[in-house]
């Protein structure tokens, strides 16, 4: 077996996450799909670190995790705020830009 297989898995997970962002309406699920895409990217970083024999990929993956944690905190706070004012967690309901 070949470490590149991990990359294929990462690509598939990323694609699934992308579909989820487009087709799911619940803002929290959309957000979880974004997290899935981030994790897929992390997997490629770790795999490439292994293939290249240096730890820099792992360091970047570490930073990605920290940034993802920040994003989750702020993103969820925004969802809660929107829910509070609109009584809905649907991303389609927040379509005020239309008009």
């Amino acid at each position: 077996m070949n470490p590149y297989n991990y990359l294929y898995v990462a690509g598939l997970l990323f694609t699934i996450g992308a579909i989820g962002v487009v087709i799911r309406r619940n803002a929290i699920v959309v957000f979880m799909c974004v997290e899935l895409m981030l994790n897929a990217a992390n997997l490629t970083l770790v795999t490439f670190a292994r293939i290249n024999g240096t730890l820099d990929g792992q360091v970047v993956a570490f930073f990605t995790m920290v940034v993802a944690a920040c994003e989750v905190v702020v993103g969820l706070a925004i969802i809660v705020t929107i829910y509070r004012s609109r009584r809905s967690a649907s991303v389609d309901d927040a379509s005020l830009l239309k008009r």
């Binding site: 992308a18 927040a94 379509s95 830009l97």
Partner: peptide, 17 residues
């Protein structure tokens, strides 16, 4: 094209990718 739906914009991003 500007439906106001964030998801359709995400679809455009996907197509761009």
């Amino acid at each position: 094209t500007q439906t106001g739906f964030a998801r359709s914009y995400a679809a455009f991003i996907l197509i761009g990718a």
